[in-house]
Amino acid sequence: MASPREIRRRIRGVRNMSQITRAIQMVAATKMRRAQERSTASRPYSERLREFIADLSSQQMDAEELRQYPLLEDRPVNTAGMILITPDRGLTGALNGNLIRRGVRFIREDAGVPTKVIAVGKKGRDFMTRTDQDLIADFTGLGDGPSLDDIRPIAQIAIQEFLTGSVDSVHLVYPKFVNTLTQTPEVVQILPIVRPEGDEAQDVNYIFEPDAPTVLNEILPRYVEVLLYQAVLETVASFYSAQMVAMRNATDNAKELAEDLDLSLNKARQAQITNEVAEISAGANAFRVD
């Protein structure tokens, strides 16, 4: 058995560690709440936009009309595109691993064709460079509260790749925030734009200024931007909740470990005392003259 001194040192180490994990847990809890608020605040815009596009595209379009909206063009996929959104940092339990695994599965199975990757976040980028994937762009260091302006360049690259025919579809892979305990990797197609279905198909005859194609062609890229923006905000929320849970588990484990060590410390000390007493009484016995 280890000596009491050694056990004491380990207890100190474990306690220090639990202090650190607890601190990270607290910080993550606060930031998670803020990230959730941000994600909620941005929802009205995307919902309005979705209703809007549903309204505008509810009218049946023939092939001739569709050609005016290149972002809606559905074509056979020879090259796929994937935007993998991951956190910049770790200490998130299984979150990053699951996410990256889902991304790899997308390339191998869902796409099944050569796939170009845009990595948002360090973890995904590092993996993609390490495994030598076809990485066409990476964005890192977006921080906890990126603005829509920060996200726009990502959407622009995706749109550009799609319009030039360098990829025939673009999917998003990101950690969907289900609740504090659950975040699941989610795959969403953003290009060509999947036309949302209106809940109640309002058949409104709009007046367009300047004209319908111009308006719709302005709106459609914004829809791509906002889908991406929401996914990024959700990734931040998922990151902090996963980190909070992982750090809480770490803190609990450290506490348990410290208790176990306390017990073995007591045992070791008791054994030492018993030993010493035994030695003394043995020594005394040796001098006893009957």
Partner: peptide
């Protein structure tokens, strides 16, 4: 986009940049 416009109640459905 086509100049300043005023909207009063009961306006026809409109979308403008």
């Amino acid at each position: 986009a086509d100049g300043s416009l005023g909207i009063l109640p009961n306006h026809a459905p409109l979308v403008t940049l």
